[in-house]
Design a protein around this nucleic acid. Structure first.
Length: 423
RNA sequence: GGUGAGGUGGCUGAGUGGUCGAAAGCAGCGCUUUGCUAAAGCGCCAUACCCCAAAAGGGUAUCGAGGGUUCGAAUCCCUCCCUCACCGCCA
């Protein structure tokens, strides 16, 4: 969330930056400012009363020690106490109202982010490799069916539409990709491997800003108030919530592979063919907790770490810088990595590398002690490294041979235990 | 699931009704001593918020969370959450 002091001191700047996203968060700024003013008034009055009570209570203590009469004083304190209870309630209500508003206001886009309403204003910053020259390429659905790599019909029997059941060589290929990516990030990029819980508390979901806004997209377990993680970003980023880290320990770099659960409410009919958009998928996720000065350097290197996966697999991709209107709620700047899918004849988003600055850290009270001994909020970043089903689809489509067998990229062969897939 | 113990500052840990935002130690910062390092000595060192144009300064809250008792709560009572130990059950 945004710093209330920034909103107070530079409301116009905040409104202006928020307006570039295209939402109506600007209106919430007026609301927050109103509640903030009210809250502070209440708080000040409350503090005066508390001071009064302390003073009188101490006086009673002194008089009692000197065996003086205190009945009159006690009656006065009782009155003050009643007022305190009342004011306290009103202050808490205002505090909560302010906090709830702040939780619903999006992050400010970084100055370098191109201004624009929709994906049309996104900027391709670079691309790598070339589109493979294939004559009449089969798409992953056809390839998967022919080589029995996954079975969507049977998955639907188990769980309904939007679920994947990888089978045989397909399951092995997915596992090979996971191991390949995790090993790469751990051994060559210096990330610490984590195997986190897949169910998290509501607070965590608020911390990384999936909630309150995106509740309709999340799977939750009502009974015990836990949520299925929509991405490993949630447990990884929250790992150090409520902590004050040592500056020497930054940046912290984590990698984890977890299933990701998403309702995809309202996405019906869009990109839903095959395994491109599903309710559950595996994803290797990269998360960094960084000091603010290094934040944007860390974003560049994180993006590079994710790109490396595609380079080693020989898959053509491009990196797109999202415009202000396409930025997710909490992000200040985002690079999407899009791999080429010959079957769809389109680029598929396989990673979204974002810098949240202190937006998430403030929500989860994630701080570090700077060299002056002052506590400051960390910056948090994350990006997929990479999402499995789309990577899987792009890989088999790109690596297909004219007889519809698949040639496994050389770097992946040791993990897969073979050089090709054919029936 | 049952029983018991416990949750205090960056960490360890004392504190059972007022003068406690909290002893002591560790870590950190500054100074002194020193060829350098080490060691020693001295001092400083929680957070958030509010008031103030700002600085200086002042104030309030916070001892897991919420509620209660009381003139007054880290301290007493209740509820919840979490941790640990043992027992039961189970991959």
């Amino acid at each position: 969330m945004l710093d209330i002091r920034l909103i107070r001191e530079k409301p116009d700047l905040v409104r202006e930056r928020l307006a570039t996203r295209g939402g109506d968060d600007g209106a919430k700024i007026d609301e927050v400012l109103r509640v903030d003013g009210e809250r502070r008034k209440l708080e000040t009055a409350l503090q005066h009363l508390n001071a009064e009570r302390r003073r009188l209570s101490k006086e009673i203590g002194g008089k009692r020690a000197a065996s003086g009469a205190t009945a009159e004083l006690e009656a006065r304190v009782r009155e003050v106490g009643d007022e305190i209870i009342d004011l306290n309630k009103r202050t808490s209500v205002a505090e909560e109202e302010q906090n709830n508003l702040l939780l619903e206001i999006a992050n400010l886009p970084h100055e370098s982010v191109p201004i624009g309403k929709d994906p049309g204003a996104n900027r391709v910053v670079r691309s790598w490799g070339e589109k493979p020259r294939l004559t009449e390429p089969a798409d992953h659905v056809a390839l998967g069916a022919k080589l029995k790599l996954f079975d969507l019909e049977r998955a639907a029997k188990l769980s309904g539409s939007g679920f994947i059941c990888f089978t045989d060589a397909g399951a092995r290929l997915e596992r090979a990709l996971i191991n390949f990516m995790i090993e790469l990030h751990v051994r060559e990029h210096g990330y610490i491997e984590i195997s986190p819980p897949f169910l998290v508390r509501r607070d965590c979901m608020i911390g990384t800003a999936q909630l309150p806004k995106l509740e309709a997209d999340m799977y939750g377990l009502e009974e015990n108030q836990l949520f299925l993680v929509p991405t490993a970003e949630v447990p990884l980023t929250n790992l150090h919530c409520d902590e004050i880290l040592n500056i020497a320990d930054l940046p912290k770099k984590f990698v984890a592979c977890t299933p990701c659960f998403r309702r995809e409410a309202g996405a019906a009919g869009r990109e839903t063919r095959g395994i491109i958009r599903v309710h559950q998928f595996d994803k290797v996720e990269l998360v960094k907790i960084a000091r603010p000065e290094r934040s944007y350097d860390e974003l560049e290197s994180l993006t590079g770490d994710a790109e490396r996966v595609l380079q080693l697999l020989g898959l053509h991709y491009r990196v797109v810088e999202l415009c202000t209107g396409d930025l997710s709620f909490g992000s200040a700047k985002t690079h999407d990595i899009e791999v080429w899918s010959p079957g769809q004849n389109a680029y598929l988003e396989v990673s979204s590398c974002s810098d949240f600055e202190d937006f998430q850290a403030r929500r989860m009270r994630l701080r570090y002690k700077d060299s002056q001994g002052k506590n400051r909020f960390c910056h948090t970043l994350n990006g997929s490294g990479l999402a499995l089903p789309r990577l899987f689809a792009a890989l088999i489509e790109t690596a297909q041979q004219t007889d519809r067998s698949i040639r496994i990229p050389e770097k992946l062969q040791p993990y897969f235990g073979g050089a090709e897939i054919r029936l």
